[in-house]
Design a protein around this nucleic acid. Structure first.
Length: 765
RNA sequence: AGAGGUAUCGCCAAGCGGUAAGGCUUCAGCUUUUGGUGCUGGUAUCCCAGGUUCGAAUCCUGGUACCUCUGCCA
């Protein structure tokens, strides 16, 4: 029933590694909303990630209100956010925090920064600050106030605090680097003057910390180990780490970023959600069509479905747009097992059984379908006249029609088999009633008619059924990505059918149920009572419709989607300018090396890489001085050795002689060891192994194995150990060949002769 | 133009040099008194181009596309 969820993601890998290395003993995560609005499904993803991870790893999670900007924040939002998170089933226990509770501490730390000469008060205007910051292409320049003395800064900051400056007059800035390629690092503002009323601190403060300054400190104060946020903060991480380091916070929290959720046919940004509410396109933040948690709760979506959905979509760093079908699946999957089935007719049409003689009767109808291991029933009234769904009768039935048509027997669900004999229409030609006859012996449960009728139709009793209002909700927008591309105008994007209100008729049994009962109205969808419902006027919200494959079948063949061709960019024949070309442009020696390497017969890219830095070039020369084929030497260094250094190759701190590498490559060249073994040996050297290559080969058995008998023995073993794969291979799964080669190679620890193994294996298989 | 990211099926998403997981969607079939549910089965060679290797989605080089950053918002 539960879909398998991705059990691995990059955050888990980070945590696993941190736990394994002892960097942390147990994890602490946090969800840090600003109390300036309502939570939506995107927040639910973030919460499920941070809190879910803490739960899974037996760690701790915090709820922290990041209330550093008093202007938009309200206690009302604090309450709604708490309610929403609790609804999702998370309990933060005693770990409820407010950034504003740390204001004193943060201000003290700012003083410390000033004392260290790492922060200064800037008197530049907002506009000037922007101008001085530069832009994406131009570096910034220093503020004229950047070099104020520590004393002056201390004095000025004190005055900011005590209210001697007005909003916007001065700011406190971190003194970092106005020429940093990362704009975030160009002396970011860390405190601003704001004489605003704070929802918890009142008028106590005249200054408020900025997010970048406050957030990392909050994490540190709370000893958060893994501070998870969305991708747009990637650029801010450098500042986060800078502040943690300069303020000496220990242990240091770390920030990791993941992609935020985008869901089709809805919007997630506060701006648009607010517009929907303010312009009355919806009834409020909790309108059942809203993607807010309050809206989903009112719609009747169980929180478990939201959680299941969050598990399903996983977490990664690639921007994505999740198909609503996935969310709908999660909701249906949850509701399917817990929603009682009842009958409700949304568009009633009268049907009279002309040969029905009794007054009425009561049928015991099961609440649950077969296979549910539940056998509760409810009484349902039945009489001579019932309502059926107008769309269940057709005068011109399409192919494969399974409902009513004239003269064909159909079962009234849980009741009798009937046959329509006559169609009564009004003056406009509209059908107003169907007259039919029934087979008295076909009563459901005691059917002695012997008939097998595959057509079924649901119904409610004419006299006793209750009229109710049903709200049929559908997606709010017409397009999958309403807020992308061009200017987004709500009027054009809104789905006019997002709410359809109907008068429907429902069986009486529902009056006895708890108000929060979830139902499946058979053949329609899942419903529950709206909170505005009362005993006189009952209102049902449709949570989600049933999956409808008939509609698809019936729809005209969908227009063929134009297949997007994967763009293949033609390879330009122009020689390309690499960053190394630029380096060489300023370093004649390297340029000379480059030319020399090429003349030695190196392929161009290897020559390019090896002459990219002085350190590398020296190293290559040192290795090739010892002899050997320059081309192969180069290729080995570039492709096998360099990846170990992850762009940080430094000859001077190498820890082994170039001679060693020359020897190693010679062994590979002379085919006395395989290249895989060569790589393994280098790995050992890289990690500090000091035995000679010769010794290593001897001691560790790296010598290339070309002995057929040994190889065949391994091959036999592999075939015996993997009977399943063997069978599949023989069944035609050729791609398994590589698997067998791999297994043999593994047995030999990479020492077997690959070519030989292949040919032997081919014979054996 | 700078910096930081990302690219695996229609949509999410595993994969970390040796069999291209899984879920959603979709298609086919079975069951069915819900055109629902359940069950069975099918559907990708990994953005492009080179290179290294017995073997590359994974390593190297170079491209391309998309996202984020120029608030005294978070």
């Amino acid at each position: 029933m539960k879909p398998a969820t991705p059990k691995s993601n990059f955050l888990r890998q980070i945590i696993d590694a941190d736990l394994a290395s002892g960097k942390v003993q147990s994890i602490v995560t946090r969800f840090p909303p600003e109390p300036n609005g309502y939570l939506h499904i995107g927040h639910a993803k973030a919460i499920c990630i941070s809190y879910g991870l803490a739960e899974d790893y037996n760690g701790t999670y915090h709820l922290r209100f990041d209330d550093t900007n008093p202007v938009a924040e309200k206690s009302e939002y604090v309450d709604s956010i708490k309610k929403d998170i609790a609804w999702l089933g998370f309990d933060w226990g005693e770990h409820l925090y407010f950034a504003s509770d740390y204001f004193e501490r943060m201000a003290d730390i700012a003083v410390g920064l000033i004392e260290k000469g790492l922060a200064y008060v800037d008197s530049l205007s907002k506009e000037k600050i922007r101008e001085y910051r530069g832009n994406l292409n131009e570096v910034g320049k220093d503020s004229p106030y950047r070099n104020r003395s520590v004393e002056e800064n201390l004095d000025l900051f004190e005055k900011m605090k005590s209210g001697e400056f007005d909003d916007g007059e001065v700011v406190l800035r971190a003194k970092i680097d106005m020429e940093s390629p990362n704009i975030v690092m160009r002396d970011p503002v860390i405190y601003r003057v704001l004489k605003a009323h704070h929802h918890r601190q009142g008028d106590k403060w005249n200054i408020y910390p900025m997010y970048d300054y406050a957030h990392c400190l909050e994490d540190a104060f709370e000893k958060i180990t893994h501070s998870l946020c969305s991708l747009e903060f990637e650029n801010n991480r450098e500042l986060y780490d800078w502040l943690i380091e300069k303020t000496g916070m220990d242990p240091a929290p770390h920030q990791y970023e993941f992609a935020r959720l985008n869901l089709g046919y809805t919007v997630m940004s506060k701006r648009w959600l607010k517009k929907l509410v303010v312009e009355n396109h919806v009834s409020g933040w909790d309108d059942p069509r809203m993607p807010t948690l309050a809206g989903m709760r009112r719609r009747g979506i169980p929180f478990e479905a939201v959680r299941e959905f969050c598990d399903m979509i996983g977490v990664a760093k690639a921007n994505s747009l999740v198909d609503v079908a996935m969310f709908e699946f999660a909701i249906r999957d949850e509701l399917n097992t817990r929603a009682k089935r009842v009958m409700c007719v949304l568009d009633p049409l009268k049907l009279t059984i002309t040969n029905y003689e009794g007054e009425n009767e009561t049928l015991a109808c099961p609440y649950w379908p077969r296979g549910f291991d539940r056998d509760e029933t409810r009484p349902v009234h039945f009489s001579k006249t019932v309502y059926i769904e107008r769309s269940d009768f057709s005068e011109t039935p399409p192919k494969k029609w399974k409902r009513l048509e004239k003269g064909v027997e159909v079962r009234l669900r849980y009741a009798y088999i009937i046959k329509v004999n006559e169609v009564i229409k009004n003056e406009e030609g509209e059908i107003i009633e169907l007259l039919c006859t029934y087979d008295k012996s076909s009563k459901s449960g005691s059917d002695t008619s012997g008939k097998k009728v595959r057509r079924v139709v649901h119904w409610v009793d004419f006299k006793t059924s209750i009229e109710v209002q049903v709200n049929l909700y559908d997606r709010l927008f017409i397009n999958e990505r309403p807020d992308v591309g061009g200017d987004f105008s709500l009027e054009k994007e809104l789905n006019p059918q997002s709410l359809v209100e109907k008068k429907a008729r429902i069986e009486t049994s529902i009056v006895n149920d708890d108000l929060d009962t979830r139902y499946q109205f058979e053949r329609h969808g899942y419903f529950w009572r709206d909170e505005a419902s009362d005993s006189k006027a009952i209102i049902f919200n449709r949570i989600v419709s049933l999956k409808d494959s008939w509609a698809k079948e019936n729809a005209k063949s969908a227009p063929e989607k134009p297949k997007e061709k994967k763009s293949s960019t033609p390879r330009s024949s122009e020689p390309v300018m690499t960053w190394r070309d630029r380096v060489r442009g300023e370093n004649a020696q390297l340029q000379k090396d480059f030319e020399e390497y090429k003349s030695l017969g190196l392929i161009e890219v290897d020559a390019d890489v090896l002459s990219g830095t002085p350190s590398l070039s020296h190293f290559y020369k040192a290795v090739s001085d010892k002899g050997g084929n320059p081309k192969n030497l180069a290729s080995w260094i570039v492709n096998v050795m360099l990846p170990f250094y992850d762009d940080h190759f430094d000859y001077s701190t190498l820890g082994f002689q170039p001679q060693v590498i020359a020897n190693l490559i010679e062994q590979v060249e002379s085919k006395s060891i395989t290249s895989a073994a060569g790589k393994k040996i280098f790995e050992m050297i890289f990690e500090g192994e000091r035995r000679s290559i010769q010794t290593l080969i001897e001691d560790e058995g790296f010598k290339k194995v070309t002995d057929e008998a040994t190889l065949l023995k391994w091959i036999d073993e592999v075939m015996v150990e993997n009977p399943k794969q063997l069978e599949m291979y023989k069944g035609g799964k050729d791609s398994l060949f590589g698997f067998f080669v791999g297994q043999v190679m593994k047995k030999s620890r990479g020492a077997a002769d690959g070519v030989l193994v292949k040919s032997l294996l081919k014979d054996q298989l």
